[in-house]
Design a protein around this nucleic acid. Structure first.
Lengths: 225, 225
DNA sequence: AAGAAAAACATTGTCGACAATGTCGCCCGG
DNA sequence: CCGGGCGACATTGTCGACAATGTTTTTCTT
């Protein structure tokens, strides 16, 4: 179907720099490219069989994501992961997701709320399969928070959390292994949050979400901070 | 002093793309480049006497700032300013600045608090010079909020607000002329916030800041939304 | 004449080369 | 032996040209 002259970057409506960006983002989040390590443009360009120009575009977008730090005429480094940064991240999450939860209680339709409950049922089954004290599935937890943010209807809020902060959260989880041992408690907190949303009680929903995130933060602080 | 071979981009420790970025950011914020208008890379490159490569770097950073929207193989457009976006912006500000205010109450030192009061005295004098119902100085208002955010000590929060959201706020103010007629009320609200910070009452400081921003939002919604 | 196909144009994405800066190692003087 | 200056190397910033896509205009057919 495709002619022999099909260019390498004519894929799926996204540019080559887009795909480089996504690949590198994944490698950084999962720690495949070590935190704090220096980025060599020529080396990466060779690894991905591309030119430096497109690679640099990807690097700049990673910088604006907060995953890289670039200094003029020096180069780019993957950000360091320190406890302070993680705690700061949770403070911002508390503020933003609290607001998102309030808005979700006002704006979510019934289908979206049902979807939330379905996610929780899935959690419950998986939790029963695993040991009672098993770590809380980061995947499912993310799904829960993700859906609430989407339900806020505030595009700026959605973009800030889902396209910016969450990658950093995942990076910390992967590399510092922040598996929360608060499985059962977190599950109950999630359920209460859904109840508040379904009751259209935005004020309560916000309070519960903030306490939920703050509890995680305190948990982290006790361990690492 | 400078030799004839001094390169154009060897200024002040920042790259040419950095300066292009700042220049364009200013022109977009102030409406010199109209909202919603299409960006022509060759045209701008000619205007700034630079190559397209450096210009594209600046454009990408503007995109990550939320001031431009780019589509692959089509080009970049300045974002449109609609009431919905402005209201969303204020919802995010309410959440983030509320948190910033809480943290500021916990972390600001006395010198910073004194600086806040000095800003307010300046406001008062300028307000007296102008008519009693005069619009609230965007400059001074920004200074007040700016300082509180700085005082939070949370680097992620500072970056998100000062290096990301505030440019959009300024863009709206310039172009939609959002001069708040709440001068005296806002001034009193600011003073109460400072009092709460000085009393190290983070909870109250957050509540007051949120109400302050929400009042502005309601004011805007009544007018435009 | 109206609509569609096609070609010409303009714009964007990508690439390799050059210029300038930072970095590392070596040599020299103290 | 140690510290500072100097030079070679590597890396980054910048530029102009080419390839591919989107857009507009022209032209041909019905």
């Amino acid at each position: 179907m495709s002619s022999v002259s099909t260019p390498a970057y004519a894929n799926g409506g996204q540019s080559l720099a887009d795909r480089l960006f996504e690949s590198l983002r994944g490698e950084i989040v999962e720690g495949n490219i070590a935190a704090g390590s220096k980025i060599s443009e020529p080396e990466l360009a060779k690894r991905f069989q591309t030119s430096r120009g497109s690679l640099r575009e990807a690097l700049m977008r990673l910088e604006s994501l907060g995953l890289l730090e670039r200094r003029v005429n020096v180069g780019a480094r993957v950000v360091e992961l320190d406890g302070r940064g993680l705690l700061e991240l949770y403070e911002v999450r508390e503020a933003l997701e609290g607001m998102a939860c309030r808005l979700a209680a006002e704006n979510m339709n019934q289908a979206e709320i049902d979807g939330l409950r379905a996610v929780m049922e899935e959690h419950e089954q998986q939790s029963e399969l695993q040991a009672g004290t098993a770590y809380f599935q980061p995947e499912g937890d993310f799904d829960f928070h993700f859906r609430i943010v989407q339900g806020s209807g505030n595009q700026l809020l959605i973009d800030t959390l889902c396209n910016r902060l969450y990658y950093r959260v995942r990076m910390y989880r992967y590399q510092l292994g922040m598996a929360s041992p608060r499985a059962k408690r977190a599950f109950r907190e999630h359920m209460h949050i859904i109840d508040a949303i379904e009751a259209r009680d935005g004020e309560l929903a916000e309070i519960l979400m903030r306490r939920h995130i703050r509890a995680s933060r305190n948990n982290i602080q006790a361990k690492i901070g």
